[in-house]
């Protein structure tokens, strides 16, 4: 009897929770949509006022251009950019992770590597873009190098933070129960550092895209950056804006649908973690 009452109360609660969740999600989507509408509206008004396609084309004109691009070589160009950014990113993670690991593990290495990493992290992206162009000229490797250099410090600093934050008490527990170093590394160190690696990747992701694209503007014969420059040289302003918009849209999609989902899946346990 009490059981059934308790159960039905619980069910009611759950239904309530679900309904509220759905409601708040709908409201969130509505807000996002509204934001875009306001943005496009303002743009439209501004373009009416400027009244010059060469300076500020109207949203409709840009939309036409987007359709043309999508029907044309959009995917080839995007693919070229993606491959470079991902390659640069992989390099950053492959180098940044061990560097960060040493920084977090030993004071000596921490001090030794700290200044170079911080300096590397505070150099403006444009510098890397120019540097990559000077080193490689027009090539596939220029953007890769620039992306790698810009993302590496973020990954390293975050990994170092993660390694320093490994809970000593969990390591002690492992020792007391006779776990060996490999087991401690795999089951304690890696899981506690992983969220930090991920944070580093997410932090530097948009930055890396920007720098990669910037490098393409002058150091490439393919990719979104190159397309922006080409349209600019042809005085095709709608084309420039169309490519920029596609670029922004694409980044948002990757962020929302790949990074955020991956993070949620990987760190399911964090949802319930209550910090004391």
């Amino acid at each position: 009897m009490t059981d059934t009452v308790a159960e039905s109360i619980q069910e009611l609660d759950q239904a309530q929770v679900l309904r509220t969740a759905a409601g708040s999600r709908r409201r969130r989507y509505l807000a996002v949509l509204l934001g875009w509408l306001v943005f496009i509206g303002l743009w439209w008004l501004l373009s009416l006022w400027v009244d010059s396609e060469a300076r500020l084309p109207s949203p409709g004109r840009v939309f036409q251009e987007i359709v043309i691009i999508l029907q044309g070589d959009f995917w080839t160009q995007f693919w070229a950019s993606i491959v470079r950014v991902v390659a640069g990113f992989l390099a950053a993670v492959l180098i940044g992770t061990p560097v960060g690991f040493f920084m977090g593990r030993s004071k000596y290495w921490g001090n030794f590597l700290q200044s170079p990493v911080i300096v590397a992290g505070s150099i403006p992206g444009l510098t890397y873009a120019v540097m990559a162009f000077v080193v490689f000229g027009i090539s596939f490797w220029g953007p890769v190098l620039a992306v790698g250099l810009i993302a590496m410090p973020y990954v390293a600093i975050n990994v170092a933070e993660g390694v320093r934050g490994v809970d000593r008490r969990l390591v002690e527990m492992s020792t007391a129960y006779g776990r060996n170093e490999t087991q401690v590394f795999r089951h304690v160190t890696v899981p506690s550092v992983l969220p930090f690696v991920f944070a580093g990747v997410r932090l530097s992701f948009s930055l890396a895209w920007k720098v990669g694209t910037l490098t393409e503007v002058f150091g490439s014969s393919k990719g979104i950056g190159f397309q922006i420059r080409r349209n600019y040289q042809l005085f095709n302003m709608p084309g420039v804006i169309a490519w920029v918009l596609l670029f922004v849209l694409f980044m948002l999609l990757i962020e929302r649908f790949i990074l955020v989902r991956l993070e949620r899946r990987l760190f399911r346990w964090r949802q319930w973690e209550r910090e004391a």
């Binding site: 008490r169 969990l170 002690e172 089951h187 506690s192 346990w269």
Partner: peptide, 10 residues
């Protein structure tokens, strides 16, 4: 231990 010391990710 004085505290539970469980691996939060397991």
């Amino acid at each position: 231990f004085q505290d539970a010391r469980l691996l939060p990710w397991r």
